[in-house]
Amino acid sequence: MSVEIFRDVAKPILTGFSITAKRLMHRKVTVQYPDQMREQFPRNRWRHFLTRYESGLERCIGCSLCAGACPARCIYVEAAENTDQERYSPGERYAVRYEINMIRCIFCGYCQDACPTGAIVLRKNFELADYKREDFLYTKEMLLESYPGESNEPYVSKYMPK
């Protein structure tokens, strides 16, 4: 009788709790996401940036190769001629409109591969969720970095405590 109690009741309980005890020793795996960011993989691709040269001129020349390479057809580029009075990029032409539908984009990075001047890059900002559909149409003003090298800075979460 007592052997049966040990075999059927006590032993399974001990076996079960031994697993619990082992897991208690284990290091904690949870990433406390809003307070603490996990390390992103080096080739992670998220939000797009239009980069600038060191001189402040835009890299984008409005060639629409990114729009051609895009499998989701979410990029729209409209080019215009540079003049000596208004110079945006070193080449002949620049992108007067550059729009990405961020909700249709699949972040494949083909635009980055196709770009001959390295203008469009995908960086680590993954916090893109929003309430309205219209807010996902990223215009050139939103995509273009405000100063050279802004896109290479490490991304800080919007919920990160200061």
Binding site: V31, Y33, P34, M37, R38, N44, W46, M102, I103, C105, I106, F107, C108, F126, E127, L128, A129, D130, Y131, R133, F136, K158, Y159
Partner: peptide, 16 residues
């Protein structure tokens, strides 16, 4: 109510 872009969104993007 909320659209989460990504293909697929990473778990932290969904948490956001």
């Amino acid at each position: 109510d909320v659209y989460v872009p990504g293909c697929p969104p990473s778990p932290d993007a969904l948490i956001y």
